[in-house]
Nucleic acid binder design. Structure first.
Lengths: 231, 231
DNA sequence: CGGATCGTTGACAGGTATCAATGCTGGTGG
DNA sequence: CCACCAGCATTGATACCTGTCAACGATCCG
């Protein structure tokens, strides 16, 4: 839990403008003079699988851009139960609720090795009080939150367990960059994503492996959509 | 479906500033000069129970503020299934995804008689290109979308049907203005909200009525939280 | 070599979907 | 005014699915 290595830190312009994924991230539309408004340093951090980026109800000071990797947002209930309410990938923004001063709604945990940029909220506020250049990017991200939530509710929480797991696998595969291969979460996480038990998740995954719909070694997986049979 | 009576139309300042629920709505922070930027008329519309405010994938031109009543956002899937993904009440904003030019993600349907203000997106854009006065209100509403989605996923889609229905009733009651009495949706809507069948919803509601946790006449309901027994 | 963690599988009880029938209510037209 | 109909709520019977409890194998690591 302590290895969140700091790669580097900077104040904006000199690094962000050269960012290889800049067109994917929050600062895509910023001008030179906007970067000069940054007073607090932006830090690039590395998290290993299982490490926590921030906790639910933590005091808020940062917004996080995912540079690479995979992050789960976990919502804990007072009774000890929990759900994974969202997955974040490259270009996604974590802790966006920091922008109106509320505390974090979920705990953010890296599911595999993950690289992020930690951006002080004050830098964002600084820009927003001077220009509207962040407006469309922020709006786009808020909308993605809504659209993801919509997909989640309408596809990942209804139907039987085979439907749900199949939907999740298709979702994971649809966003994979690398040759159709994607990261397969552990059975407990699949359960927390789909509101089913670990055992049921395991049974369905095992069956998908037998029918050939899914092939996986450890957490690296591929699917053959034509072999999907939900009968 | 044709009775969406138009109460009145205006261009901003003269009416919005006198709005009795102004502190609840999007324009809470606007100044006199902001209202003067409105070029297109804002209209106050009335919808009866069951009438559609907008449809999924409609071309987008408006954002809607709920003045009173109750609205469900329905997400239809290609296979004909559907889910209710959110409920909107007084002060909530419908069609907020219009703000970045996407099409509506869901269909909005009034669940009971509902009064709304229809605001052209261009008016919002006009303000946003000149000032940051809308920023915090918009952010607050986007965050409410996220926070609602979170509650939905973590409480309304897990556990057995009694848990889910009880959670929904507590949610509905928690936001009622009038003496603990609230609007009880029809069984089919309860099912679409909780991802259970109409029959199961009916069975649970009937049982809650027998145990005294719930009392309802038609769609007007009250609950006695102390009589909740999930055994 | 243990020990811990994770995935798999089995048995069984309980919960839910499904199909079906019946009552209830409000509205319509004769 | 009443008969009828359509839509909604309720209830029953049954098959299927999933949660629960439990055992066991595989893998990794100290």
């Amino acid at each position: 839990m302590k290895s969140e290595a700091i790669h580097q830190a900077w104040n904006g312009a000199e690094k962000c403008q050269l960012c290889p994924i800049r067109d994917l991230v929050l600062f895509a539309d910023l001008k030179q003079e906007d970067f000069n408004l940054f007073h607090l340093p932006i830090k690039e951090l590395e998290f290993k699988a299982g490490e926590t980026i921030y906790k639910q109800n933590d005091t808020i000071s940062f917004v996080y851009t995912i540079r690479s990797g995979l992050v789960k947002l976990v919502h804990y209930l007072p009774n000890g139960n929990y759900r994974i309410t969202r997955l974040l990938r490259q270009g996604d923004l974590a802790g966006i609720e920091a922008l109106n001063g509320a505390s974090y709604l979920q705990q953010a945990i890296a599911m595999k090795n993950t690289s992020i940029c930690r951006i002080p909220v004050q830098n964002i506020d600084q820009i927003n009080s001077h220009s509207t250049h962040l407006y469309s990017q922020l709006t786009a991200r808020w909308q993605k939150v809504q659209s993801d939530a919509d997909i989640w509710l309408s596809q990942l929480t209804m139907g039987n367990s085979k439907h749900r797991v199949a939907s999740l696998l298709l979702y994971l595969a649809s966003n994979s960059h690398s040759e159709g291969s994607f990261f397969l979460p552990c059975r407990e996480d699949i359960g927390a994503l789909l509101a089913i038990t670990t055992e049921t998740a395991s049974r369905v995954i095992a069956e998908f492996n037998r029918t050939g719909f899914l092939e996986n070694h450890k957490h690296s997986a591929k699917i053959n959509p034509s072999k999907l049979n939900l009968a």
